[in-house]
């Protein structure tokens, strides 16, 4: 199982999901992907993305102007 990190700070919609998709595509089942973003739409978008792509949202925490999500590849 691998752990990956994506820095998507500063990227506007649809940047974060595009970057996440690219990494998820080359990941194995069970891999953990951490992504940090500043686009606040991501809070809702990541839930929809995980539902649609059958990946699991492990955690989502909100910092100062940033969101950090951990996704487990399904």
């Amino acid at each position: 199982m691998a752990e990956k990190y994506i820095n998507a700070r500063g990227l506007q919609c649809p940047g974060p999901v595009v970057e996440l998709f690219k990494v998820a595509k080359v990941s194995e089942k069970g891999d953990l992907i951490t992504i940090e973003v500043t686009d606040m739409a991501f809070k809702k978008d990541i839930a929809a993305w995980c539902r649609k792509t059958n990946n699991e949202l492990v955690s989502l925490c909100e910092g100062e102007g940033t969101l950090k999500a951990v996704i487990r590849k399904g």
Binding site: C13, P14, V17, V18, L20, F21, T53
Partner: peptide
């Protein structure tokens, strides 16, 4: 194009 990129990123 934003919708297209988003949709592709959703696996569509």
């Amino acid at each position: 194009l934003i919708i297209a990129n988003g949709a592709a990123a959703m696996g569509d």
